[in-house]
Design a protein around this nucleic acid. Sequence first.
DNA 1: ACTTGACGTTGCCATCATGGGAAGGTTTAG
DNA 2: CTAAACCTTCCCATGATGGCAACGTCAAGT
Lengths: 155, 155
Amino acid sequence: MAIFSFPVNIGAAASQSGVSAKMIRHYEQIGLMPALKRTDAGYRTYAEADVHMLRFIRHARDLGFPVKQIAALLGLWRDRRRPSAKVKALALEQLAELNAKIDELQAMKRTLEELAAHCQGNDRPQCPILDELARPDLAVVGSPARRKRASRFGA
Amino acid sequence: MAIFSFPVNIGAAASQSGVSAKMIRHYEQIGLMPALKRTDAGYRTYAEADVHMLRFIRHARDLGFPVKQIAALLGLWRDRRRPSAKVKALALEQLAELNAKIDELQAMKRTLEELAAHCQGNDRPQCPILDELARPDLAVVGSPARRKRASRFGA
DNA sequence: ACTTGACGTTGCCATCATGGGAAGGTTTAG
DNA sequence: CTAAACCTTCCCATGATGGCAACGTCAAGT
């Protein structure tokens, strides 16, 4: 299935890996990808292994891993003597992150559903949603303990 | 319970509303808060109604509403002739957003749990997590259809 | 060989909500 | 009167991503 002849340019690397050319350059700049070979004209060239690495990165991103963690995963991937426990630890850490974010969003969801359920949604102005938002004490329902300025579910 | 005598400075407005002084200034700058009164020295002053508005904003943020939607909510809040249906529509829209994000995160979670479950997590290097990340075809389990560059759950 | 279009390069700006800090003015309590 | 605690504005950073501009390069068709 070697439709492409390696090494390829950034465009082909992008379409084969699912990582945009923009992001490929970005990953190189922040040091996630190792230094790359260039043609005389300055074009980046990607060997098959490089495309594999990009694919790896993309899959990790698809699972929500932040770049820092991906760097760690790549390190373990390359290290043929890694203990799989280290990989699993990273995975479980990320799982905890995902769970925290899910919990946070679900708390919001519950509260908002509650509010919406009590709103008539007609032509009259009376609206418990606004009333509650204006209250001094609204709290997000079921929010696990007191979120002290929770990570506002950023990437 | 009027412990504070209005109008207050930005610090008191912040601690009373739960919105940081930093963000209060920001909201003013982007036009979410109306123009404010200042003392001769240039200090912003907040009347009780202003603090109420800040609290409203914060509650809306706590439910995940983006600033644009909050602007709309504030408009409806001020409009005593609003149809509650408009408020409800905004709430349901936000609810749909939350659900989409939750679904996305849960798809990641399922996939990652799957991978982690098959990893021994011991001293040996063999690790299905890395193996799968390196595969060309990994897909996030249960991801509703093909996410075409899904909103990477940004704020 | 020359033009053209597709592709590559760098660099800067924008998003979104938020925090940090510097450099400087003000107010208030001791 | 001084020192602490406040306030002001302005700039920079985060994280991952996209967009655009200005410009260089390569391959294909005339």
